[in-house]
Design a protein around this nucleic acid. Sequence first.
DNA 1: CTTTCGTGTCAAGAATAGTTGACACCCCGT
DNA 2: ACGGGGTGTCAACTATTCTTGACACGAAAG
Lengths: 74, 74
Amino acid sequence: MPRDKTRVRNRIRELRFQHGEMTQKALADAIGVTRQTVNAIEGGKYSPTLEAAFQIAAVFGVTLNDVFSYGEGE
Amino acid sequence: MPRDKTRVRNRIRELRFQHGEMTQKALADAIGVTRQTVNAIEGGKYSPTLEAAFQIAAVFGVTLNDVFSYGEGE
DNA sequence: CTTTCGTGTCAAGAATAGTTGACACCCCGT
DNA sequence: ACGGGGTGTCAACTATTCTTGACACGAAAG
């Protein structure tokens, strides 16, 4: 599994499945980035731009804090 | 006034003053970036990393959404 | 068995975020 | 009048995010 490089955690994978088995590519297209970028963010390889983060939350219709969390619990 | 390059708005200046006239430099030191970076983010020249955004919110003891907003109202 | 889809990953490069050092301006205090 | 703090901004550089194109693998379908 991918290595964490940031203290930011996310529930993207979880949210994708809750949204009709949405694929990484579908999410990528929805927010205007590439599949690889979604994969990297989801895997915590690096933390996204606030801009990208907002778009992801918007796609799922939730707030930033519903998708991302910072350093809590570890 | 600085030009907006992103759709992200922030209330950093407002929050700084609500926190004992905290200076840009003091905030910069608190979140581990430079004075110029805080100035640029506050002025909307570019949108910060989610990591930086989280740290700013943490300094003010509020949530991400209390500091930043995306494209609403315009 | 062969194809297709979703995913993980890598390398090289483009684009953007953040650094460092500098100069200017304004306001306030001495 | 002089200094200092706080801010706006610039250029040049480094670091990180993101893209493009590729290859591999497992699962499911044909």
